[in-house]
Structure formats: C-alpha cells, structure tokens
Amino acid sequence: MQRSPKRLLTLMYSRDQSTSRTAAWLYALPNFFFRYGIVAGFVLLCLYFGTFTEEHRFVTRDNFINVANQIAINMILASGMTFVIIAAGIDLSVGAVLALCGVVGSMAMVELGRTGLSGELTAALGMAAGIGLGAVCGLFSGSLVAVPRLPAFIATLGMMMMARGLAFVVCGGRPVSPLPQAFTAIGQSPHRLVPIPVYIMTAVVFLAHLVLRHHTFGRYVYAVGGNEEAARLSGLPVRRIVISVYALSGALSGLGGMILASKLGSADPKSGLMYELDAIAAVVLGGTSLMGGRGTVLGTLIGALIIGVLNNGLSLMKVDQYWQYVLKGLVIIGAVLLDRLKRE
C-alpha cells in the first residue's frame, strides 16, 4: 500500500491532471493552504507524522490522548489569551502567574492539611486560592491597561516579573510538597483512559467559545478590540470589559498552575517559563489578529493542537530537541505569513 503524502496530495488536490507529479504537488500545497488555511495545515501535519513515525506510532489512540493531555495547560492559558488579544491587548504574565498561583495554592493546601481538614476539601480550597490569586493578578494588570492606559505589553511585562519574583519569595525558592492525594489524583490518574486535565480543557474551551460567540460579554470584547472609540460612543463599559479579560486570563493561568502542580505532585516557582509565548503562538496560529477585533477560541484550539502535534511528532521521530525549536519557529512564521497572503 502506497502511503506517500505526495501521492495523496496529487490525487486529492491537483486540478490539472496533465502536469507532472512534482509540479502538481508544488502547485497544490500552497493552494490547499490558501483555501483551507490552518485546518489544512493541521491535517497535513497529522498525515505527515502518521506516515513517517516508526510503526505509525503517531496514529494510536493512546498517543492522541497523550497529545491532548500535553496541550491541556497551554490550551487553557491560550483560551484566556484569546480574549485578551481579541480585545486588542496582550498578556505576557500568564507563565509567571501560573507559577505564582501553583506555589501559593499548593502552600495553602500544605497549611490546610495540617489542620486536619479532609483531603477533598483541602484540594478544593487550595485550587480556589490559586485561581482566585490568578484573577487578582489579572485585575491588577488589567486595571493598569484600562485606567492609566499603560500599554498592555508593559503592564503585563511588569506583572510577569513581579509574579515570578513573588513565586520565589513566598516559598523560599524550594518546590512545595507534599500535596494531598485527593489533589494529585487530578493530574495523575494512571487507570483512567482520558486524564482529568483533558476534561477540564474541554470544558474551558466549550465555555470560552460559548461566552465569546454567544454572550453579550463576548460581543463587547470584539467591539472593544475592533473599535474602542465606537464601543465607548455606543455606551459600552470599556474599562470594565478590558479589566475583565485580563482577570479572566489571570484566573485561567491560576487554573493552569494548579493543574501543573497536581500533575507533578509539587509546585515549583521555576515552572511555566515561556508558557506565555506558547499561548500567544497558539492564538496567532489560530487566525486571531494581534490588532484585535477578530479571532475565535476554536481557531486557538487548532493552533494549540498544531504546536502539540509538532512537539509530539518530532519527538516520536527523534528529532533533536534544539531543532524542534527551530522548526516550531518556522511553522509559526510560515502559517501567519500564508494567512496574511491569503487576506491580500
């Protein structure tokens, strides 16, 4: 059986059967991208890894679940980032806020555990603390963007540094453990087919999509990002909306931090490095405009999947870790470049 992707492509996409196979392939690839954009890229990527990984290990049920589990945290951060970017902002603090919230939430659990509270209640309170703290961080940077109108880049850059520093300060630089078993069970569930973080991610994506596309809040976010002056002159509470998107992004970072701590069994102030860049990459790959006013959560999901599949597939093909970075960078630039060409 012939599995060459070249062959598949020529069969599926060349319009002119008379051209040579190579020429048709060259013609079909960009054309395919143009018409179906990022989804097509994703499908191509899966086809490629499906074909070229050893024993087609990429296309197994366990590997798909594995990819989903690996992208869960990035996708949760990227959901919040989608709101922020559609509102014409940016949030560089998500990785650091994730670390801070993981550490603080975990410390709360350690303290509560000493009082003899049940494991479940301890886990619930600790998670609430982490998520709440994330929301507070977002409120802070969001207020700086909305009221004195600091550039989002600066406000969240400052927040990033403060959160990273505080994460080290509160725990003295040492990872926080042990965490209650009821909590670590969320991230470590060996006898479950689908890990709980995947369910959480699914719920977050579903809710984010619902709010963005069908709720007045989502409508306002598009309006503020698309034309802030028009939004203001239409009576929208622009400041409140801007602050809210950063608070949401912060809360989701907190959630991400708790999931990460649960997976690892401890909270590390060094965690979450560069997570903001992965989240931004997913949002941008998903077709959301950095200028604001345009984009979808489902697009971001595709973007996160592409990054996840690249990580997974390249590792399965035993591509050197450092080259993986180079390739990921190329893919992001290429995808956005094609998207721009398509619009023009």
């Binding site: 598009y222 309006a223 698309g226 034309n227 002056e229 028009a230 939004a231 002159l233 006013g293 345009r294």
Partner: peptide, 9 residues
Amino acid sequence: KLQGLLLRM
C-alpha cells in the same frame, strides 16, 4: 468609520 462602526462585524 473611525468612531461609529465595527467594520468587520
């Protein structure tokens, strides 16, 4: 265009 409309919407 600048103050009234959300052109993409």
